[in-house]
């Protein structure tokens, strides 16, 4: 197995595009190294992107933030600007693993590992974040939702890498939240999850919302109907109950060792309700 620490994104892309065997990008390695050790993947080439200048930067852009693909959970969690604007994105990302894992894990790695249960992704979907992808044919910006193709698969073409994730700017009266269900309190994998981002109108009702559900389908789901249900409301109990029902309606989970179809479906609705409430309170507190 060959290991290369690329010095530029162009070099990384060239190496990956030109390689004929199995190649993998290495960011924090908290998924990849585990897979290597257990013999799940046996790549001939590993390209480390952490040393590429700019990959570990968080830069203000157009009222929002551009987050480099190698920014770790610990680094994002210490960024006051991102924490204030996108607390739900930060909390989803910071739930991953332990202190040690947080020192290395990246959002881009979580996204490209393409687990339907990845904790960083639902909040990014709810946030309407976009991904900058660089490949042999240049650079493109892609909505988060279009990256995962199914468990363990992405829509990235051969030689393409994610170089950054863009979190858009937003008005003051807005916030987001993420919740996951795990049978333990940490070191676990989401059995169902929900990210909710919303903007409040001047009258205190929800002006617009995005709701995303994790671990209840082969890829993260955007729950458009659930968002519609809460728009224009103050999240009274009856609205929240209808929101949960709307979430349940789109779940297509599997029955497995981690949870039944019934459990995942019901729990996704519960989490969406609770995350919406938290996001609503956070947004209200800012006003």
């Amino acid at each position: 197995m060959q290991y290369v620490a690329a010095k530029t994104a162009d070099e990384a892309v060239a190496l990956l595009a030109g390689h004929s065997g199995m190649a993998r990008v290495l960011a924090g390695g908290t998924d990849l190294l585990v897979q290597l050790k257990s013999g799940m993947v046996e790549p001939d080439l590993v390209v480390d992107i952490k040393r590429i200048p700019g990959m570990r930067d968080i830069t203000p852009e157009a009222g929002g933030f551009r987050v480099g693909a190698a920014v770790s959970g610990a680094e994002l969690g210490e960024h006051a600007g991102v924490c204030a604007m996108w607390p739900g994105v930060v909390e989803g990302f910071n739930l991953i693993g332990s202190t040690q894992v947080q020192g290395r894990a990246t959002m881009a790695g979580n996204l490209c590992n393409a687990s339907p249960a990845g904790d960083a992704v639902p909040s990014l979907v709810a946030a309407g974040a976009t991904v900058r992808v660089q490949g042999p044919n240049g650079t493109r910006d892609v909505p988060i939702l279009e990256i995962p193709a199914g468990p363990g698969r992405t829509t990235l073409a051969k030689g393409e890498i994610v170089t950054s994730i863009f979190l858009p700017g937003r008005p003051d009266r807005a916030s987001d939240a993420y919740l996951r269900f795990i049978p333990r309190t940490e070191m676990d994998i989401a059995v169902a999850s929900a990210g909710v981002s919303l903007v409040l109108g001047s009258d205190g009702t929800v002006e617009s919302a995005r709701v995303a559900l994790g671990a209840v389908a082969p890829t993260i789901l955007l729950a458009e109907e659930a968002a519609k249900v809460i728009t224009g409301t103050r999240l009274d109990d009856e609205t929240l109950a209808r929101m949960a029902t709307a979430c349940e309606a789109i779940c297509k989970p599997i029955d497995d060792k981690r949870g039944t179809v019934e459990f995942r479906t019901r729990t996704a609705g519960v989490l969406a309700k609770r995350a919406a409430r938290i996001a609503y309170d956070r947004a209200g507190a800012k006003a």
Binding site: P183, R184, T185, E186, M187, D188, I189, D256, K257, R258
Partner: peptide, 15 residues
């Protein structure tokens, strides 16, 4: 189905 500590869940300290 679960021969590992991820899916064989012993309690962790925070539990």
């Amino acid at each position: 189905q679960n021969p590992g500590f991820l899916d064989y869940r012993i309690p962790v300290a925070s539990d």
